[in-house]
């Protein structure tokens, strides 16, 4: 298992006339935690969605574990089973209880026996600290709790890579911390993570690497100390100062 787990090579993505991604190239090694930051509309989320095939790319190549992403349905499904995704709006299934939300991946996709799937789900709920909510419905949980369940749901598939699309942007400030803590623990355990976020403190403390996006291209790519303390590119400095980031 050598070589980067993910590599982007001159990736291009268009929405009609609008160029969302304009030749993005970089690699992620196993176990790396990479944060994508940048202004809204800079292409960060688009890149994430191209990675697990929710969007198709119009140019360049994305390789997962050395193999280009398949263009056929069955192949794409296989790849998605190896990646987990956490959405900004959680997207828990409202008609299923929490435990069933977490177990649904193993049950339906991995065709696991009910008992095994539920045991795995219970273990994961325990890990994110929500065992007592197993029988509740998502509507009865706070935003932070729902997002933690969403993380557990993604982990239930035992992915090799976790994609986070602005996981805390829709949360109340009080609940952001509980979600970031779960993410930090995941990172400490060695999970490869690609995180689109506005939470600079998280990026600063947990990421191995921070990539700054602007208008579909990479502006700067380096360790957090570089990006936040001694950025090499003017636009990075501008973006951070715009956020009021004093370092």
């Amino acid at each position: 298992m050598t070589g980067p787990i993910l590599s982007y090579c001159a990736v291009r993505k268009l929405f009609g006339q609008f160029v969302a991604l304009d030749g993005v190239s970089f690699e992620i090694a196993r176990g790396e935690v990479v944060c994508l930051i940048g202004p809204s509309g800079s292409g960060k989320s688009t890149l994430l969605r191209c990675t697990n095939g929710l969007e198709t790319i119009d140019g360049g190549e994305i390789r997962f574990d050395g193999v280009p992403l398949p263009s056929n349905d069955a192949g794409a499904r296989q790849i998605r089973q190896r990646m987990g995704m956490v959405f900004q709006n959680f997207e828990l299934f409202p008609h299923k209880r929490v435990i069933d939300n977490v177990a649904i991946g193993p049950r339906i996709v991995l065709r696991m026996k009910d008992g095994l799937a539920v045991r795995r789900a219970e273990a994961l709920l325990d890990k994110v600290g929500l065992s007592e909510k197993a029988g509740s419905y998502p509507a009865n949980l706070s935003g932070g709790q729902q997002q933690r369940v969403a993380i557990a749901r993604a982990l239930a598939m035992e992915p090799e890579l976790m994609l986070f699309d602005e996981p805390t942007s829709a949360l109340d400030p009080e609940t952001i911390g509980e979600v970031l803590n779960v993410m930090k623990r995941l990172a400490d355990e060695g999970m490869t993570m690609l995180v689109v976020t506005h939470e600079m403190t998280f990026a600063r403390r947990v990421a191995n690497r921070v990539i700054v996006f602007e208008r579909g291209t990479i502006v700067e790519d380096g360790p957090p100390t570089q990006i936040f303390e001694t950025p090499r590119v003017e636009r990075t400095r501008d973006f951070l100062s715009h956020l009021g980031w004093a370092g």
């Binding site: 929710l54 959405f87 828990l92 991946g105 996709v109 749901r153």
Partner: peptide, 8 residues
């Protein structure tokens, strides 16, 4: 999308 992301 969430369902597809799980591999369904």
């Amino acid at each position: 999308e969430a369902a597809l992301a799980l591999g369904m």
